[in-house]
């Protein structure tokens, strides 16, 4: 084996799956060095889990030769969560972008345990996910937020609004995209409460997209400006405009005056607001 040049050894390693790579890196110091230094040059693969016969699918995926899996898509997953957890654990150093669509009902505690440990997770999309018992988690972890340490972009689409609780205090969260939240627990306006709680605890947020978030019983602006974050981009769909008082909108926009550069209304606001925006704000882009 020692007769083979290093670049050939790297070629051999590039045929290995992640698990075998980890084992190989324990063989000797040279192998360990070579595997560590060549990881970046090895191929990137996406993992996509769509099959219902998840156990089998994941076992196969696990054996794919790879350097690093960066992207994971889990669609219609209704299989064994333990296997999924194992997969996440194997790729926990490299996974950066995860999309989850329509999984089976997961308990929030299991979800957090499996996903929050991913060290390089920076983008997470949850679509049609319903996670149970999110409130419990909030109570346990608040204050000691190490979870989702590198998460920057979060998209929550058509999920139960309790999910917001899981991301409270995520330090690096800079972009939040929320579409159509709902709750099974009345009163309805709880969505806004949870959302605002998340916004209030995300100091680095500079992009916000709210789309079709119903239950705007309370005025979103009145609560947003209180905790004074500076948005650079904002896209908002004011579904129930009658609840948005002009005074509050003006105050909110004035507060964001310095940072706000991109403002997109998905529903056209009243003429008075348009007038106000045009006279008071210097925007790079304004769209109705």
């Amino acid at each position: 084996m020692e007769c083979l040049p290093y670049h050939i050894l790297v070629k051999i390693f590039s045929n290995l799956d992640t698990k075998s790579l980890v084992i190989s890196s324990k063989v000797c110091q040279l192998w360990s060095e070579l595997i560590k230094s060549s990881q970046d040059t090895m191929n990137c693969f996406n993992i996509k889990i769509t099959s219902n016969r998840s156990r089998q699918t994941i076992t196969i995926l696990d054996e794919l030769p790879c350097g690093r899996h960066r992207n994971l898509q889990i669609i219609d997953f209704c299989g064994d969560f333990i296997i999924l957890k194992q997969l996440l654990s194997i790729h926990r150093m490299t996974l950066a972008n995860i999309i989850i669509v329509r999984p089976t009902l997961w308990q929030a505690s299991i979800f957090t345990e499996a996903f929050s440990a991913l060290r390089n997770l920076s983008e997470l999309t949850l679509e049609n996910c319903h996670l149970g018992e999110c409130e419990k988690i909030n109570k346990n972890v608040s204050g000691e937020i190490e979870n989702f340490a590198k998460l920057r972009e979060l998209r929550i689409i058509n999920c139960n609004c309790e999910i917001f609780n899981l991301f409270i205090g995520v330090k690096n969260l800079s972009s939040l995209h929320v579409e159509y939240s709902y709750t099974f627990n009345p009163p309805e306006n709880i969505t806004m409460k949870y959302l605002i709680n998340l916004l209030r605890n995300s100091p680095n947020l500079d992009k916000l997209l709210l789309f079709g978030v119903t239950s705007f019983r309370e005025n979103p602006f009145s609560d947003c400006f209180k905790f004074g974050f500076k948005l650079e981009r904002m896209k908002i769909d004011v579904v129930e405009r009658e609840y948005v008082s002009l005074k509050n909108v003006k105050k909110f926009l004035k507060d964001q005056k310095k940072s706000l550069k991109y403002l997109i209304f998905l529903t056209k606001p009243s003429d008075e607001i348009v007038e106000f925006i045009k006279s008071e704000l210097t925007l790079n882009k304004l769209v109705f």
Binding site: F13, N15, L16, S20
Partner: peptide
Amino acid sequence: TRKIAMLI
């Protein structure tokens, strides 16, 4: 090289 990888 794949053959060697299979042995590993």
